[in-house]
Design a binder for these strands. Structure first.
Length: 532
RNA sequence: GGGGAGGUAGCUCAGCCGGUCAGAGCAGCGGACUCAUAAUCCGUCGGUCGUGGGUUCGAGCCCCACCCUCCCCA
């Protein structure tokens, strides 16, 4: 994305996760999206761009209302509790540095939602009509055809649903088929990966139907400004968070500066809402469309999609408590091509932790820092050039940066880790421990130690978006902090400039970056066993 | 019911428009080395490419049928 801007203003990058349904129990699927967004935004920050990373919670709807009632509290109290006790802690668990957290029950959101639909209604994009659909009396709500069990039974009650109708307001979605198609034909990367793009385009080609955007049977929601008997249907409320969070309806100037989003990260299950309904809403309002909707795959456990009901939902903390947040972040992005489904297993997680994080990366840091301490009293020798390592670094940095542009997080990580491999190889081949035994070769030893340290400096910068805690420790351990400033301010577009670590930097051996862990107890155990 | 994705070494996966395409990483095995978190480096074993047909001089790669998994729509 070359920004043709000639100004000195740093590019801005606005990225979102979906807002998570507050009533769900947070599992690793939610954390996966959040982590991917966090890594992307950290990378963009290290490009020197102004970044805005948004996440939040979706809090309206009958289900919330009902569970709150069952718990004997108001829906608002119920949401407050879930947000504070369940959702915000997940961000800390996975070490996510979001810039904002929007809740759909906040005034800034509700105001924006009302403003938005008011605009659409005035522009003639809404009309009253009758909605008819399968309705479960037990749930007191309409179901989507896809929600029903075999034979048209309610998935909650297992009882037959009835066809019921109510007066609703409709959004003229059908009016935007052409415009959406034209947009996607002109912007083939606006929905990624390609399979998602194809799905969206063929769905639009089937013809879009107007869609009910309000509900009269629900109380916990944003009231329509012109019809207080109805609330905005939860999706048409939730999607607007991306706009209301950056000022739509409350701070027009800020909104104009920030919108549109560069990337909406979504799970493939909610692709249609983001790639069809949402852009159509924006077209209706005359607003710019998001530059890209990226649909990532499912996390599978034991070959099955995770779900709360099947007990396959794993809490992020279950993994982080054992492996740490860095390993969590690393594993899911490294092991699974972003955009594809991927399987999680404790075995694979353990194997990658050990082989890649501990043995390849962590151990390289140990090798270098021990040798500098042992052979040079912890004082880094003077910079010397190194063709081979410079070239490898240049390539890795460029490959990683290119990969990030297309959200290929796996390749970005592989590029950095490939460089780590090169450096391990370099150390083995140059045999500094032998040089150390020969006074006459002190200069050669200096060179090897410097080149290895300088390579680690670069590796730390490149991996910092993914494993920030470990890289920060390494950064200090290399004595880089004092000379070069905080690692988070190191630019990825400058990382390949050789010779940044200065002579005399204080190198100290730290605790292992990724210590060996105890074997996980009982084979295949833990709470991951697909519980019968 | 319609549409789509996928089934390739023990594991996770690459294989673009058919002709060194039978590959990588991990695991396993053997060797080198000792700075290091028993780490590193090198070498190596390993697959009738879901099943059955077909097209072709030649097919994981094309066609048909079937089996299995998953997704979307109805």
């Amino acid at each position: 994305m070359p920004s043709a801007d000639s100004s000195d203003e740093p590019a801005s990058f606005f990225l979102t996760t979906p807002i998570y349904y507050v009533n769900d129990a947070p599992h690793i699927g939610h954390a996966y999206t959040t982590v991917a967004g966090d890594v992307l935004t950290r990378w963009h920050r290290q490009r020197g761009e102004r970044v805005h990373f948004l996440t939040g919670t979706d809090e309206h709807g009958t289900k919330v209302e009902r569970t709150a009632q069952a718990a004997g509290v108001s829906p608002q109290e119920w949401c407050d509790r879930l947000v504070e006790d369940s959702w915000k802690p997940v961000l800390r668990t996975v070490d996510a540095a979001n810039d904002d957290f929007i809740r759909t029950t906040e005034p800034r959101h509700e105001k924006g939602v009302q403003r938005f639909w008011e605009v659409l209604r005035e522009a003639g994009h809404c009309y009253a009509s009758t909605y008819e659909g399968p309705y479960c009396v037990g749930c007191e709500e309409f179901k989507l055809p896809g929600d029903l069990l075999e034979g048209g039974l309610c998935p909650v009650h297992g009882t037959p649903v009835e066809m019921l109708s109510e007066e609703n307001w409709f959004f003229r979605l059908s009016a935007f088929s052409e415009a959406l198609l034209a947009h996607y034909e002109a912007n083939p990367t606006a929905v990624q990966p390609e399979s998602a793009y194809n799905e969206v385009v063929s769905f639009i080609k089937q013809g879009l139907q107007d869609i009910s955007m309000s509900r009269s049977s629900v109380a916990w929601g944003v009231p329509l400004p012109w019809d207080a008997s109805q609330v905005v249907y939860v999706w048409f409320d939730a999607l607007l968070n991306y706009a209301t969070a950056v000022g739509f309806g409350t701070d027009d100037e800020r909104f104009a500066q920030t919108w549109p989003a560069d990337v909406h990260l979504v799970g493939k299950d909610i692709l249609r809402f983001h790639a069809i309904y949402w852009p159509a809403m924006l077209l209706a309002a005359g607003l710019p469309l998001p530059r890209q909707v990226f649909a990532h795959g499912w996390l599978l456990v034991g070959g099955e999609k995770m779900s709360k009901t099947k007990l396959t939902g794993i809490a992020p903390s279950a993994i982080v408590d054992h492996f740490g947040s860095d390993a969590f972040r690393y594993y899911f992005l490294r092991a699974i091509p972003f955009g594809s489904d991927g399987s999680f297993s404790w075995e694979d997680m353990s194997a990658r932790y050990k082989s890649e994080l501990a043995d390849q990366f962590g151990n390289l840091a140990s090798r270098l820092t021990s040798m500098v301490e042992r052979y040079r009293d912890g004082v880094l020798p003077a910079p010397v050039p190194n063709e081979q390592l410079s070239a490898a670094l240049q390539q890795a940095a460029s490959d990683a940066d290119t990969a990030i542009d297309v959200l290929d997080l796996q390749s970005a990580i592989n590029a950095a880790m490939g460089f780590v491999r090169t450096v391990n190889n370099y150390v083995t081949e140059t045999e500094p421990w032998k040089l150390a035994k020969d006074e006459a070769r002190a200069g050669d030893l200096d060179a090897v130690l410097y080149c290895t340290a300088e390579s680690l400096r670069a590796a730390a910068v490149l991996l910092n978006p993914v494993i920030p805690k470990a890289c920060s420790v390494l950064w200090s351990s290399l004595g880089a902090e004092a000379q070069l400033g905080p690692i988070s301010e190191q630019r990825v577009d400058q990382v390949a400039r050789w010779g940044q670590l200065p002579a005399g930097a204080r190198v100290t051996k730290s605790d292992p970056l990724f210590p060996r862990l105890d074997e996980l107890s009982d084979a295949g155990g833990r709470e991951t066993a697909p519980g019968g």
